[in-house]
Design a binder for these strands. Structure first.
Lengths: 197, 197, 197, 197
DNA sequence: TATGAATGAGTGTTCATTCAT
DNA sequence: AATGAATGAACACTCATTCAT
């Protein structure tokens, strides 16, 4: 690790976060030791604590990265004028890319640690609520175009989509193949959309 | 614990499993200690090892109980002749009851430990596949009655339903209320069913 | 460590306390590790935690032993009818014996840790107050016999004696010889007593 | 920190010592980190090591400052011709001022670290011996004026006074109030002096 | 002269598992 | 069948000290 580089601190932080994501991904948050993370980037354990106060903070930071990425992805997914079916198709790749870019079981780790950490609970709540609101707003708009029936409870369905997405991360973390998951997602999402018409 | 009773061993095992479920439910598998479990039934830690080889085996056994229960529930849910909509309505209560009867985050614990244990991975795969097959068979039958279109990929949708159910356990474990989850489930399931007609 | 012995637990606790006292005595509380203590009695570190919740509790327990011993010694020192001078003479040996039987710098360790521990502060306060009260009561009685002038502030002097005793433990822990300390104590105590007549 | 100033080194050293005293005073030597000290003067940790070889040297240097101050104070306290009683009265304020000007528990820190450091032991011995010699010389002079009986062991009493003073620092560090300690000191010192007449 | 990133040897504490009784 | 004392390998986190810049 060179030292007099612009944004050095930022880079160092990111390199640690990447290592943490990789290790958490392999062994899960609980079984990963700070030593594992340090060793992966060839740095001493102590160095980690120069950038993050605790192992938990590492997980939370990863969660925050996840939330902000998801927000952006969802945003760009719902550009006006695009057809429902097409969005649904794109959605999977978008979600899958996102998940892979961090690590598949991050949501699981977060859910698992939530009972022990108010910070994580807050994060998850924010993540859920923001995504749901965005999704719902989008679905409501489609009511106007007639693509969705007036009597559909869009909030409930929005939560359904989020739930589905989370469920698939479990699936993936259990070793399911991408193609299997993709097929299931597309067929199920298509059915939901068709069912609201 | 009395000693010369028929099925004594069986009873002892069950009492330990119940205690384990209760403790895992409260603190999660990782944070639960063997001592917690032993203390709950007023027995020594050593006694646990007379019935179960390790803490992991405890979790696996719980998983097996879960799988067999679910199989039965799903079985009884899909009695012939019942209307799709009604089944969907009943399903949630049925699932919810099941989950509560063991403990809500068991699936989460299992998913979480899966990367560390071939046994758990096998169990989860079996659980997934069996349920999917049953669900699929059921949906296929409805194709004949015309309740479901011929071109629907019932396998993909079956996996979708399972995924949805797992996703809701995450939701519940994050503190969502039963009614919120129920509403979302019913609306989403209804949409899927309608979308297949 | 044999196991089925009457008072086994009590003995085990005491053996740990003795080892802790020996180690604290050599290196001071802070520099002593739980491993040092465990190794001294040929036991694993974990075993220590079967009997004491933390290192701090070890120190507090030692402190409690000290306080109760001191109370008893002071009590027996002040039997009625004994002459002031004789008591003063006996006092040193009594105190010295006490201190040595635990360890010289225990009071120092306690004083040092007091700012970090409410439990220790409480203990020290109790120790100080009880001893002072007893001492004061004793001196007040001597006012009646005329051995002490009426206008002496016995409370202030009682605290003076306690302070002197504590000061000598510092002295001893700095390597002063017993005889040197004894001589100083006797001459000083004699002067105080004479000065109150 | 400006650089090309006469006595710069001396000033820097002093500023570090002051910061160290302040931190040691708040948290005690052991619990104070080099970072605490550096941060207090807004300097890097590394800078500390340009002026002092180790944390221990910092404590020793503080001890040396203490010793030389005490020597001076004691010196000026015992100007010829002043009455014993008056000196005793002044002594407390003088000592208290001194102690506060460094920090109350410095002597405690030194006593505590003495077993681990020959340097500190030497320092403490020097401190003790010098003060005792000075005190003793002073008391011997008073024998000539008849204020003190010929048969008093002045050396023993001198050590008694020093001990008393150290004991009071323990008292203060345990949270005793200045007035309480002052009262005890005055009454006790008065008794000692009276008892030597 | 000064920085501050990095180190690495510790520390107290936990807990699944074993085994003599 | 049951106990519970004991183990020992971990593990998160700390901090005095170093050194390239």
């Amino acid at each position: 690790m060179p030292k007099v580089i612009p944004d050095y601190k930022e880079r160092a932080r990111n390199s640690i976060l990447d290592a943490a994501a990789a290790e958490f991904s392999e062994k899960g948050y609980r079984k990963t030791t700070m030593d594992d993370i340090a060793r992966r980037i060839g740095v001493s354990k102590g160095a980690l604590y120069l950038y993050f106060d605790s192992k938990e903070v590492l997980l939370v930071s990863l969660g925050e990265r996840l939330v902000s990425t998801i927000s952006n992805e969802v945003e760009s997914l719902f550009e006006e004028g695009v057809q429902l079916e097409r969005i649904s198709k794109n959605a999977f790749d978008s979600i899958y890319r996102m998940i892979q870019s961090w690590y598949p079981s991050l949501v699981l780790d977060l859910a698992y640690e939530a009972p022990n950490s108010a910070k994580i609970r807050r994060l998850m709540r924010k993540y859920t609520d923001e995504t749901a609101t965005r999704l719902m707003g989008f679905l409501e708009e489609r009511k106007k175009t007639g693509e969705i029936r007036r009597d559909v409870d869009t909030k409930a369905v929005a939560y359904g989509f989020i739930t589905l997405q989370r469920g698939y991360t479990i699936f993936l973390s259990l070793g399911a193949s991408k193609s299997q998951v993709k097929q299931s997602w597309e067929e199920t999402a298509r059915a939901i959309l068709a069912g609201m018409r």
